[in-house]
Amino acid sequence: MSIKMINIGFGNIVSANRIIAVISPESAPVKRIISEARDKGLLIDATYGRKTRAVIVTDSCHVILSAIQPETVANRFNPDTEGMEEQ
């Protein structure tokens, strides 16, 4: 089993094998997840002070905030599909 790393912006890298979900931060339930992770000490802010555009949930219950779009993070899982048109 090889370890695949995903760039989540500004030189921050996460193991793709540990990611459960990449979601948008706008909804109330996601904001609640972020707040609970902050209270438990499981929040990792990788935005460098910029607006949060993606929330990454890992299998270790850590929540990672990223300043790049969820679609961009998802596309980095399969770089071969980047730029391909739907048929």
Rank of each mutant, 00 (worst) to 15 (best):
E82P: 01
I20F: 06
A28I: 08
I23T: 03
D39T: 13
E36L: 14
S27L: 05
N7G: 08
P25V: 00
A74Y: 08
T81M: 13
G49W: 06
L42H: 12
Q69H: 15
R53I: 00
S15N: 15
I20S: 08
E86K: 02
V14T: 03
I6W: 04
N7V: 02
S60Y: 14
V73K: 02
N75S: 09
P25H: 00
N7Q: 06
A46C: 15
K4W: 13
N78M: 12
T81W: 08
T52A: 10
A54P: 05
A67S: 15
T47M: 00
A37R: 08
N17T: 11
C61W: 05
L42Q: 13
S2L: 12
P79K: 08
S35K: 08
I19N: 04
A37L: 09
A54T: 05
T47Y: 04
V63Y: 02
T58N: 05
R53F: 05
R50N: 15
S35F: 01
I64C: 01
P25T: 01
V63D: 04
I23V: 11
R76M: 07
E85F: 12
E36F: 00
Q69K: 10
E26N: 04
T81I: 09
I23E: 03
K51T: 14
Y48R: 12
Q87S: 13
K31P: 11
I13Q: 11
A74T: 07
V73G: 01
T72K: 05
S66Y: 01
A46T: 05
I56C: 03
I34E: 07
E85K: 12
M5I: 13
R50H: 13
P70H: 02
A16P: 09
I23P: 02
S2V: 15
A28V: 09
S60A: 15
L42S: 10
P29H: 06
L43C: 07
S60R: 12
A21V: 09
M5G: 07
M5E: 07
R50T: 00
I34Q: 04
V55D: 04
A67M: 02
V55F: 03
S2M: 12
G83R: 02
S66M: 00
V73Q: 02
K40C: 04
T52I: 09
M5Y: 12
T47G: 03
I44S: 11
S2Q: 12
I68P: 02
V63E: 04
N17H: 14
V63Q: 04
D39G: 12
N75T: 03
H62N: 14
P25E: 00
E82R: 10
S60F: 11
I8K: 05
R18A: 07
N7T: 07
R76T: 07
K51V: 12
T81L: 13
T58M: 11
K4A: 13
P25N: 00
R38V: 08
E86T: 00
S15P: 13
R76S: 08
A28T: 11
T52V: 12
V73F: 01
F10D: 14
G11L: 04
I19C: 07
L42A: 10
